[in-house]
Design a protein around this nucleic acid. Structure first.
Ligand code: SF4
Ligand code: SF4
Lengths: 131, 131
DNA sequence: TCTATTATAGACTAATAAAATCCACAATTG
DNA sequence: CAATTGTGGATTTTATTAGTCTATAATAGA
């Protein structure tokens, strides 16, 4: 029950983008160097973030990745969902209907966690970083 | 980011014990049959639950597993921790000290989830099951 | 005491998922 | 056209989860 490293990379990459490069596009080459991970692997995560609509990509020379305009709205949960998918942490073999108490408890717990992750926007974090 | 099936089995086994067999010990043979899983695999989980102090084992003929006396206190979190361990969901490569904002957010979220799982006792669930 | 029943432990294998690499291709700049 | 950059798919490597098998120890009851 751990977040994958891919999520870790994605969070750091997003934080970098928001904190250090709000204007210019950043290449995966540079990002990977800053984070100390392989370009090719990191690029998979970035592509997922693009598909999730969190960042924007520009190909060709001087291209790279840039945050979407609606930066303010991007939460931790958005990033995590983009990488890990949105399926529930708990999936039982049979599904004994909606009244299942086990599922209710676990899913409620999960929802509480997501609540926190949703309320935290990366722009806030970036501000704290600087100020 | 999913709970393992082992956790699923453990939760069901505990629920069975608390709901259906508060007095007699139940053998892994019977438990496995009720849950529809292999005895040998299930026994691994049960042994973990014993080590975590959640249930009690009696070997020899007519033996099996029985809840500990302090049933009332056993929470979902206890069971999950017994199976999955207690390490955090988020572990980054470097550890840039306690002021790391990413960790703070994710760990806070995790704590919220654990809060819910800790507050839910399996005995409550068993009552709802019946009544 | 002997046998059947039950848990425990460790080695082992199989299946699945995560992490990482490689390469071919498309888009853009200058 | 050449260099740079992202995308997609196949492939490999590594780690984790799931599951099996076998030997051992404890106990109840004949
Ligand atoms: S009791 Fe709930 S968790 Fe268990 S198998 Fe049924 S639906 Fe799933
Ligand atoms: S910034 Fe925080 S999460 Fe990232 S590597 Fe440092 S300590 Fe870990």
């Amino acid at each position: 029950m751990k977040y994958s490293q891919a999520t870790d990379y994605a969070l750091h990459a997003m934080l970098f983008l928001v904190a250090e490069a709000p204007d210019k596009p950043v290449s995966v080459h540079l990002l990977a160097e800053k984070l100390g991970v392989s370009q090719t692997y990191l690029s998979k995560m970035l592509t997922k973030l693009v598909k999730a609509g969190l960042i924007h990509s520009i190909s060709g020379a001087n291209g790279g990745y840039r945050l979407k305009r609606n930066q303010e709205d991007i939460s931790f949960l958005d990033i995590i969902h983009a990488i890990e998918g949105t399926t529930s942490m708990f999936e039982c073999s049979f599904n004994h209907g909606n009244e299942c108490l086990i599922q209710q408890v676990v899913i409620d717990a999960e929802r509480q966690m997501e609540q926190v992750l949703k309320s935290k926007k990366i722009t806030e974090l970036a501000k704290q970083f600087k100020g």
